[in-house]
């Protein structure tokens, strides 16, 4: 079992502090949902953990199996097993999904070791079948001209191929219609298992109807103000965030 511990994390962009002391521990095999209104700092936290250069961690630590990852470059963190499913994935013109994945897998191999092409394609096609993605899809350039649903499915495909220990899924449900949402959720559920921990960021309860979390955390103004199980998500859906804010202010 692996663990990802976020300890008193403070994150700034420019002069502005966005995340103001978050503590959270995730083990492989668990799904943690982080909910909260827009601007609460959910995405910032995920990007900072992944090592995005625009965000500075000013205090606190992030530990992977007890070891700090803050001195690692973003690509080292990725290779160590941290995967960020982007809210807005970038286009990479001219680079096919297959070639991109090959490069990413090759980057995880030791020097002199070569990827086995036939094995790679066999595995790729298995994962695509699992995610109900057509075979022709892999020859398209990464995210170029993709619909919202195609982009998110591509993220899940990458996640399936790279087999991270921890996946930070940033608003994976945003911009998806109900059918696309279901496909993506099915994909995530199929990857769910004892060797993967997931941090699921969303501000709608909707997604949690398809991907049932083990834990739910509410993030408001850069802090986690309440944690609970899946029933908390339902409560938020019916009552909104205001009561949590009040409860937190009074505490």
């Amino acid at each position: 079992m692996s663990s990802l511990e976020i300890k008193n994390l403070h994150v700034s962009t420019g002069d502005k502090e966005i995340v103001k002391g978050v503590t959270l521990a995730i083990n492989t095999g668990e799904i943690h949902a982080v909910m909260g209104p827009n601007g609460a700092g959910k995405s910032t936290m995920a990007k900072a953990i992944a090592g995005h250069p625009d965000y500075t961690i000013t205090q606190g630590d992030v530990l992977l199996d007890g070891k700090s990852i803050l001195e690692m470059e973003s690509d080292e963190r990725a290779r160590a097993g941290i995967f960020l499913a982007f809210q807005y994935p970038s286009e990479i013109p001219g680079v096919s999904i297959a070639n991109f994945l090959r490069a990413a897998i090759q980057a995880r191999m030791s020097e002199g070791e070569e990827i086995d092409a036939s094995g790679f394609y066999k595995r790729l096609y298995q994962k695509m079948d699992l995610l109900k993605i057509e075979r022709t899809f892999t020859s398209r350039a990464v995210n170029e001209g993709f619909s919202g649903g195609e982009k998110k499915r591509t993220e899940i495909l990458q996640m399936a191929m790279l087999e991270p220990r921890f996946a930070l899924m940033d608003e994976t449900d945003s911009g998806l219609d109900i059918d696309a949402l279901r496909v993506v959720a099915d994909g995530v559920n199929s990857l769910r298992g004892p060797s993967l921990g997931i941090l699921l960021i969303t501000h709608y309860q909707r997604l949690l109807g398809y991907i049932v979390p083990d834990f739910v955390h509410v993030m408001i103004d850069g802090c986690i103000v309440k944690s609970g199980d899946k029933t908390l998500a339902l409560e938020l859906e019916s009552r909104g965030y205001d009561w949590v804010k009040k409860e937190f202010a009074n505490a």
């Binding site: 470059e73 690509d75 982007f86 990479i92 001219g94 680079v95 991109f100 990458q158 790279l162």
Partner: peptide, 24 residues
Amino acid sequence: EQIFYMQQRGLTEGQAMSLSVNGF
């Protein structure tokens, strides 16, 4: 943003740049 995206998949900054140029 594109470079970060690729680095997040495990490519070094140099590999990411090379792949972008090759794609171009």
